[in-house]
């Protein structure tokens, strides 16, 4: 046991996650991963708080957000955190087509956020209802309830795509 702990502390660690970082930042100047973590730091300034709101998703979109916290992606090392309250959030990340049952809750979450508010619709459902478009119990996308600043396509978008799109959206919002 003790030996294991010492080995863990001083042993050579496999460089997990480098591919994941490359996928998250995308190709910069043709070279994969150039300025990888640097770009993450430049955009997020080591602090971004995201409140995720499930507005009737199938749950795959949430699992991809959850995966961002696993040791492969481990986005908290760049200062990115998913928070429990909208009061602490810079961004709300909406998933799902907005079921009627969640419309009020989504609106309230948005209102509870401090300014400036950024809303990102994550997944095809949140964009326009996706596969659920036209069903009687949905409002065909997040924009029907809250103003949306950007979209992340995919069903579900991969964890890397979620991170990359959030970065792109924040960059263009800052301009």
């Amino acid at each position: 046991m003790l030996r294991q702990i010492i080995l863990n502390l001083f042993g050579k660690k496999p460089a997990i996650g480098m591919d994941a970082i490359r996928a998250m930042v995308g190709d910069v100047a043709g070279e994969p991963g150039a300025g990888g973590p640097a770009r993450l730091d430049a955009v997020f300034k080591r602090s971004i708080r995201i409140r995720q709101v499930d507005a009737g998703s199938c749950n795959a979109c949430e699992w991809e957000c959850t995966a961002l916290g696993n040791p492969i992606y481990d986005v908290s090392r760049f200062g990115i955190d998913f928070v429990a309250s909208p009061r602490h959030a810079d961004v709300i990340l909406v998933t799902g087509p907005v079921s009627l049952g969640m419309a009020q809750a989504l609106k309230k979450t948005y209102l509870a956020m401090p300014e400036p508010k950024i809303v990102i619709a994550c997944g095809d459902c949140a964009r326009d209802g996706g596969v659920y478009r036209g069903a009687y119990g949905v409002l065909d996308g997040a924009a029907s309830v809250v103003p949306v600043d950007g979209y992340i396509p995919g069903c579900p978008p991969s964890p890397a795509a979620i991170m990359k799109c959030i970065m792109d959206i924040l960059e263009s919002a800052a301009k």
Binding site: G56, S99, G134, G137
Partner: peptide
């Protein structure tokens, strides 16, 4: 529960 009720069964019919 049923906050995420979307009308899936009806959607199948269409």
């Amino acid at each position: 529960l049923f906050f995420t009720h979307k009308g899936t069964e009806k959607l199948f019919e269409s």
